[in-house]
């Protein structure tokens, strides 16, 4: 009898409380597993892992592969890739999902190379097709298009996904899971890459991510001066200002204000979007805004189609008019 298929999710626990991508992937895996009758499994590597094993089971993993040893205390892409590939060679998962954190983006390609399989980066959608293949949807050609990508022959089918794309399922601490431990296959104490120092980056403000109102601007705002006017509007509305990549590259806005795949994911109650075309790398990060008010000269821009209110007009003029009107009306 054919063994039951497995969907694996790599357990990236380093920033567990801020970055829920592993849980989001487990949530997605649970959905996918129904269609191919697979078991959802997590892979956890490191030292003192009980807490994470418990969390992953509570969030939907039915089986957890564990490699635990003091020498694995520090995150190390090469070592973790070696061990994950070893586990995969033995247990042959059908699918392996990895969060696109800095670590995941270095680790996943190495695992894929070792397993001689394909990998799709930064997927914005995952689904199962009629041949039971994993359809990995990723932005392509500079973001104006989406591509559906499959890995027809090699296994596992691998994909990375940025945080915030999928939703985690609520925990259930009653849930049970099987834990399978693998001892270290070789001595891993001498390394060619050694971590000498690791310190937490000074606290980064989470203003954009947490803001109830975000005013996001794109190239259509027209000039630096008009862009700076948005800060006045932000002051009036207690909003944070975000920007698309061209503005960040131009130096009008800092990298901290970049909204999109390469920057921040936001979910404000209200998003004002001024002169933004709506490339997928940007929209993937604003999908969860509750109410979108977009201003664009072009009514056909993707951002306008996503918007709840689409204002066909000049971005700079609407900004000025809004500032004037709000000054009159805010109490």
């Amino acid at each position: 009898m054919k063994q039951k298929l497995e969907i694996w999710v790599f357990g990236d626990y380093r920033n567990y409380f801020q970055n829920r991508v592993t849980l989001q992937l487990i949530g997605k895996a649970v959905e996918l597993a129904k269609e191919i009758k697979a078991t959802v499994c997590a892979v956890v590597i490191g030292h003192e892992l009980d807490e994470w094993i418990g969390e992953y089971i509570a969030h939907g993993a039915r089986r957890v592969y564990v490699v635990e040893d003091p020498v694995l205390k520090e995150y190390d892409a090469a070592t973790y890739a070696f061990l994950t590939a070893r586990l995969a060679e033995v247990h042959k998962p059908d699918i392996l999902l990895v969060g696109a954190t800095s670590f995941g983006r270095e680790f996943a390609p190495r695992v894929a190379k070792r397993l001689k399989t394909g990998l799709t980066a930064d997927c914005v959608g995952l689904a199962i097709d009629q041949d039971s293949l994993l359809v990995q949807t990723a932005p392509s050609f500079g973001g104006n298009l989406l591509a559906d990508i499959v890995t027809p022959k090699q296994r596992p089918q691998m994909a990375t996904v940025r945080p915030g794309i999928f939703r985690e399922i609520p925990h259930n601490y009653e849930a049970k899971g099987k834990i399978i431990r693998m001892p270290l296959p070789i001595d891993l104490s001498s390394r060619r890459l050694r971590l000498r120092k690791s310190e937490r980056q000074p606290h980064q403000s989470k203003k954009l991510e947490d803001a109830a109102i975000v005013i996001c601007s794109g190239r259509g705002i027209g000039s630096r001066k008009k862009f700076n006017n948005l800060y006045e509007l932000a002051g009036l509305t207690d909003a944070e200002v975000g920007a698309t990549r061209p503005l960040v590259y131009a130096g009008w806005a800092g990298h901290d204000s970049l909204v999109g795949q390469a920057g921040k994911i936001i979910r404000p109650k209200i998003l004002f979007s001024f002169g933004v075309s709506g490339a997928i790398q940007h929209t993937a990060a604003v999908n969860d805004a509750e109410f979108i008010i977009a201003v664009n000269k072009n009514p056909k821009a993707t951002m306008m189609k996503m918007a709840d209110v689409a204002i066909v007009a000049d971005a700079g003029q609407v900004c000025s008019a809004l500032i004037r009107e709000l000054k009159k009306r805010i109490r």
Binding site: K116, G118, L146, I149, V150, Q154, T283, K305, V309
Partner: peptide, 23 residues
């Protein structure tokens, strides 16, 4: 190992309110 099987534009249209005219 990977194959691109489909390329398309992303369309997310909503029923929205459209405002035009003087700012």
């Amino acid at each position: 190992p990977t194959r691109i099987v489909n390329v398309y534009t992303s369309r997310t249209e909503k029923q929205n309110v459209i405002l035009r005219g003087a700012p």
